[in-house]
Amino acid sequence: MRLEQLQAFLSVAETGNFQQAARNCGVTQSTISRQIQGLEADLGVQLFHRSTQAKLTIGGERFLPHARKICQEWQASLQEISELLAGKQPELCVAAIPSLCAHSLPPVLQQFCSDFPNVQLRVTSLGSDRALKVLKDGLVDLALVMQNRFLTSGAEMVVDPLFEEPIEVLMAANHPLAQFEQIPWKALASYPQVVFKEGYGMQRLVQEMFLRQGLSLQAALELNTLDAFRGVVRQGKLIALLPHSALLYVKEDPLLVMRSLWNSTAEDSPLVRQVVLVTTRDRLQVPPIQHFRELVLKLIPPPMDYPLSMVNL
């Protein structure tokens, strides 16, 4: 069964005449006849009484509403795809890591809402690994996350590097480690830490670095918001490894300090994270998604001038 057969059937049913139906469809009468005969063969029933006027048989009458519904659905799908490619989608969904939601993303969101006022923008704060999963599941259109090559590989994935930034140590101003300007890894391993929950790229990054150093991570508490990290660390006992952009306001808090990590040798890789924008090639055919990507690449600067040549974990 083909769409043109259904359209021919509906045209004959509406006009009651094969010749008129052929003119309406822009084909010859013999073509209309072949299409109806082919449809009847597929269905195994005669659809019209062929006399001076083409009248529906009982089979044709039963089939008529279904044929109309199929053709209406087809037209609706064409209309929806046309609107999608024209940028007339009802919403655009974005998943982003918390530090970007708090600092870098707001200018992008404001500009996008101004440029596409009829598109409902939905932003969800998620850990990197979780955000990439919902992107692959089709629940969001773009993800702004820490790079995870295990989750961003594949020909359909589009990955735009945004910036790299160092990981630093957050602690209370009166913590014993505050005496260091750069904290050795062995000293860091002696204290309990607050870490991100599973599904956050930072947890994976920190765990991998401790393993690389041959040390054990003392994870005393798992959290998933930056405010909670600062509140807990402010109490004085726990420390946390966080990206630089999550620590931008620490200097304004007299109860908190941040310290850099010390590499024991020149060969040690600095602990940094790479932040990327991820989407899929098919989504970039949709104008609002493409425009959001362009805004991100234009408006999100690195929190500091760290070279992209730094080694990632």
Results as ranks from 00 to 15, higher is better:
Val232Ile: 10
Asp227Asn: 13
Asn224Cys: 09
Val232Phe: 07
Tyr200Asp: 02
Leu295Arg: 13
Leu188Arg: 04
Pro287Glu: 03
Gly87Ala: 01
Pro288Glu: 05
Cys113Ser: 13
Gly127Leu: 04
Gln203Pro: 03
Gly154Ser: 01
Ile70Glu: 06
Arg149Phe: 06
Ala143Arg: 00
Pro243Ile: 00
His244Gln: 05
Ala155Met: 09
Gln5Val: 15
Pro184Lys: 01
Leu121His: 01
Phe112Asp: 07
Pro302Glu: 00
Asp137Asn: 12
Phe163Asn: 08
Leu255Asn: 15
Gln37Glu: 10
Ser260Val: 12
Val194Glu: 05
Asn24Met: 08
Phe63Val: 05
Leu6Pro: 02
Leu241Gly: 03
Ser77Asp: 10
Val286Ala: 09
Ala173Glu: 12
Glu267Leu: 14
Gln274Arg: 08
Met171Trp: 02
Glu61Ser: 09
Gly38Gln: 11
Gln110Ser: 14
Lys55Asp: 14
Met1Phe: 11
Ala54Ser: 14
Ala67Phe: 01
Leu170Ala: 03
Arg293Asp: 06
Leu47Gly: 03
Ala54Phe: 11
Val311Gly: 12
Phe18Asn: 13
Ala189Asp: 00
Gly154His: 03
Asn17Ser: 03
Leu295His: 13
Gln120Ala: 05
Ile36Asp: 05
His103Asp: 14
Pro117Ser: 05
Gly16Pro: 07
Gln147Ala: 09
Leu132Gln: 00
Ala143Pro: 07
Leu84Glu: 14
Gly26Asn: 01
Val134Ala: 02
Pro90Asp: 00
Asn24Leu: 08
Glu156Met: 07
Thr15Glu: 04
Ala76Asp: 06
Ala76Thr: 08
Asn148Phe: 08
Gln75Cys: 15
Ser309Arg: 04
Lys251Leu: 15
Ser309Ile: 13
Gln75Tyr: 12
Gln274Ala: 06
Ser99Asn: 04
Gln111Tyr: 06
Gln290Leu: 15
Ser190Asp: 07
Val12Ser: 00
Arg23Ala: 07
Val159Lys: 10
Leu132Val: 01
Ile183Pro: 01
Asp42Ala: 15
Gly44Gln: 03
Phe48Leu: 06
Asp227Trp: 07
Arg204Leu: 11
Val119Ser: 03
Val272Gln: 02
Val233Ala: 10
Gln235Asp: 11
Arg281Glu: 07
Ala155His: 14
Val233His: 05
Leu299Lys: 13
Ser51Phe: 10
Arg50Gly: 06
Leu255Phe: 15
Arg283Met: 09
Ser51Leu: 12
Glu294Lys: 15
Cys93Ser: 15
Leu271Cys: 08
Leu177Trp: 04
